[in-house]
Design a protein around this nucleic acid. Structure first.
Lengths: 240, 240
DNA sequence: TTAATTAGTGTATAAATAACACTAAAACCG
DNA sequence: CGGTTTTAGTGTTATTTATACACTAATTAA
């Protein structure tokens, strides 16, 4: 290991920390941003809600571990997944030294694969503005950071599309931005900006509702050879 | 650990990965951005250059481990340090499963504490555009990512000041931006923008040189109670 | 048939960006 | 000692981008 001290081949003679992967799973449910939490059944933090996670296995990469956790909890695969941060304070777990690599996942609410859990389940979706508090371990901190990162990245990536179904209206997209950023956006400016970005593909479909019917669009995926683009809602406000 | 499977108190009965902390140490030497590398003396990757790092101890946090490594290599304390990313591919170390938490550090070149190593030393500063290749392990990847993060953060933080001495001229600051971003900036625009940001404090000192003497400035640190500010060189170009 | 509702467009102003021409103060050089 | 070179620093303007908000459009409800 990139280390100058003598290191025997059998590294495991040294005392080792445990490594877990925690996945902060976001989804848009009933037009509001939700996060999936699980209720702990035993000590420590018995009864408290926690971010789903588990120990890493020696034969899987960090991202593979995160995908495995995600699939165990939600049944979904092929979703957006990104490493958030690694938390390694000495006392974060009272049992043992545990280092936790946190990930963010964005899943579509329309996937039937998500088990919409009932009120009494030990796995539940919480709106991000109505979280139980405190969470187990240092999970308040992890979740706060995940939200901050989500908001920040929304502005310069096409991340928001990960939360939408195949077809959507421009105002639905705007609504996601508002949910995640936590503020109202101007309709006219949003229309103009998203159109100019050229990341939407018009479809012939319309959706009828109360007022004027709305056109449905599809996210234009980058094809090989296409110039890579990013869409930014605006320039300010970033993560520190 | 935030896990639903039965977990005994003695976690260490499970097979555990090793965890190291690697620190990508940047400094500005002779007006060029450099990075500190160490040469490996034994298998694996014997003779190749590597990012300094070492195993984490059970009684120190990740950041404490990074600061310890940093001090061991450079003798400096109290420098800018930031977690970069955690690398955990299964095969990145042929000896054992090793997960590496990478950090970025920025140190001032004028600190005499940095041992300026001679040509034959196994610890050496390399200009970022003249790196040895390939590095040991997956360190090419880690270093590339560190540079990308550094460039990206430069634009919306006061990071560049970490590389400068106490007193500096505005054109020296501009030069750092150019070094890290790898492109030329407009003098007039730079002057105006940095002045408007209000993050510089004028000093009575001047430095004489070849042409017109230049005024020296000092970075205005945030005092408690001050409104936090960030300086952005400009808005575009970010990390994906 | 009119009001309410949701969708979508247009426009005027302000602010940020970028390019570049200009002035200033010293050293260098015949 | 007077012009040239060198580095420092300011000003001016055109263009692009952001913001606020007024307007038109197409449907349902009453």
């Amino acid at each position: 290991m990139q280390d100058e001290r003598p290191v025997p081949y059998d590294i495991s003679k040294y005392p080792l920390p445990a490594v877990t992967v925690d996945v902060v799973i976001f989804s848009l449910i009933n037009r509001a941003l939700h996060v999936l939490l699980v209720q702990r059944k035993r000590w420590p933090f018995e009864g408290r809600w926690a971010i789903p996670g588990g120990f890493i296995r020696l034969d899987e990469s960090l991202e593979e571990a995160a995908r495995r956790e995600l699939e165990e909890e939600t049944g979904v695969r092929d979703v957006y997944l990104e490493q958030l941060y690694t938390f390694g304070d000495v006392q974060r777990d009272p049992r043992h030294r545990v280092i936790s690599v946190a990930y963010i996942a964005l899943v579509r609410a329309d996937a039937q694969t998500i088990r919409v859990s009932d009120e009494n389940s030990d796995v539940r979706w919480f709106p991000v503005d109505q979280l139980p508090s405190p969470l187990a371990f240092d999970h308040d901190q992890i979740l706060a950071y995940a939200l901050s990162r989500l908001r920040s990245k929304l502005e310069y990536t096409t991340l928001a599309f990960q939360l939408l179904p195949e077809l959507f209206s421009i105002l639905e997209l705007k609504h996601i931005y508002e949910q995640i950023l936590g503020e109202k956006l101007d309709k006219g400016n949003f229309y103009r900006k998203i159109k100019e970005a050229g990341i939407l593909e018009e479809t012939p479909y319309m959706r009828e509702g109360r007022g004027r019917p709305t056109r449905l669009w599809r996210f234009r995926r980058n094809r090989p050879g296409d110039k890579q683009f990013v869409f930014r809602w605006r320039e300010d406000r970033r993560e520190s």
